[in-house]
Design a protein around this nucleic acid. Structure first.
Lengths: 136, 136
DNA sequence: CGGCATCCCGTTGGATACTG
DNA sequence: CAGTATCCAACGGGATGCCG
């Protein structure tokens, strides 16, 4: 939670996303390609309430394969967005939790998730209407 | 710009992104997979200042191929996020512009873009440190 | 200029099986 | 339980060429 306040008054505020200089936008694209990944977003969302075990995350996200869950978690851990805690018991237990950075990411993701939830039906509707125009 | 105010006080506020019920999160995943696409984000960002011609968008985004630009624009048009205006002159001229829905999407994308811009170096640093741990 | 069609290859990602 | 490894199908996405 930092530098809010000028959130939607874009006219007088010079921000990088308004310039989109080639080199900058490529750097953004890289981060957004990993962080904007759908599984990433869902995992961060799932962990927003607190730490969870591997199996528990998988149960909440429903559609995810263990492959993608593992890959996603490893990348998030590598990026410093989640922490991995192994309890060397038997059977083993592993907890995942958002770091401080992860918490800020979750905050940045919230508006987008809200937007998606609010407009997904509208978009689905737009899609079907648009596709039905070109059918003979 | 609607229903802000309870932005980060999640404890008492029941919002869909905190429940992540299977069916809901799948719907979100679908929208996020298309809207969270890196080219989509860059195109929406490029159009945030106003309408642009096809070639002009391509020039601003630098790395994009005409294939991906065309596909992205068609999907955005299909989703009702951009409008396509053809001027039947010779040579032809086509302008793209954000719809109202597109404007709200851009607003929802801003925090994420800010976050990415602010933390991309930190993440790149985390990555290189993490990867150097497992090299013999 | 704007855009669609085709080829073609690298990557993504699911299914399955095996390990500590 | 929490992964790792392999196989393989589907998709993404660049390069090229053609059309209105």
């Amino acid at each position: 939670m930092a530098q809010e306040g000028t959130l939607l008054s874009e006219a007088h505020n010079f921000v990088p996303e308004d310039t989109l200089s080639p080199s900058d936008c490529k750097g953004l694209a890289d981060v957004l390609a990993s962080v904007g990944d759908k599984w990433t977003i869902m995992v961060v969302g799932a962990l927003s309430k607190g730490s969870l075990r591997y199996k528990e995350i998988q149960r909440r996200i429903t559609g995810i394969s263990q492959r993608m869950l593992t890959l996603t978690l490893k990348r998030l851990e590598c990026d410093g967005i989640v922490t991995r805690t192994l309890y060397p018991s038997v059977p083993p237990r592993v907890d995942y939790e958002l770091t401080e950075l992860g918490q800020t990411l979750r905050g940045a993701l919230l508006p987008l998730q809200r937007w998606a939830a609010k407009n997904k039906e509208l978009i689905a509707n737009n899609r079907s209407k648009a596709s039905s125009l070109g059918e003979s």
